[in-house]
Amino acid sequence: MRNRMALSFTAVSANESFARVSVAAFVAQLDPTMDELTEIKTVVSEAVTNAIIHGYGENDEGIVYVEVELVDGTVHLVVRDEGLGISNLEEARQPLYTSKPELERSGMGFTIMENFMDDVSVESSRLEGTTVTLVKRLSKQNVLCN
C-alpha cells in the first residue's frame, strides 16, 4: 500500500522540532531501526532549517512544505520552499560551502543529506524557491527482499 502525508507550516525555527516528530512518527510505520530514524530526523532538520534560514531569510510569512510517501519500505521525502532559491546549485552542494558564514553554519547540510539518504536531488530557481527530494530505502526491507 502507498501511504502519504503532506505537511506545511510557518517558516520559524520553533517548528523544526515539530517537523522532525511529524516525519519520524509517519515513517515509524515502516518499523525502521533507531539509527535509520535518527538519520531521517537529522535530514529533516537540515532541509527544513535551510528552507527557513536560506529560503525565507527567517521571514515568518513564508511556508515550508514537507511531503512523505511510503512505498514498499522506501521513504520518499520532499522539502520545499517558495523562497529566494539557489543561484549556483553545484557550489551550494559542496561540502563546507555556506553563504552565511556569519551565522556559524557549518556548510555541511547537503553533505549530511547525501550521506544519510540513498538519493538526493535539488531543484531551485531564483526567487521561485527550492525543492529537495530525498529517498531512503530501509534496511529491514532490503533484508526481506533479498
Binding site: 512518527a25 515509524a28 525502521p32 531501526t33 533507531m34 539509527d35
Partner: peptide, 25 residues
Amino acid sequence: GRVPTIQEIADKLDISPEEVVFAQE
C-alpha cells in the same frame, strides 16, 4: 547484537512507535 527497530522498543515499553518518537524529541 544489532540496533533495535522502533517497534521492538515500543513493544517492550507498551507504547506506540509514534509515542516513542514524541518522547525522544
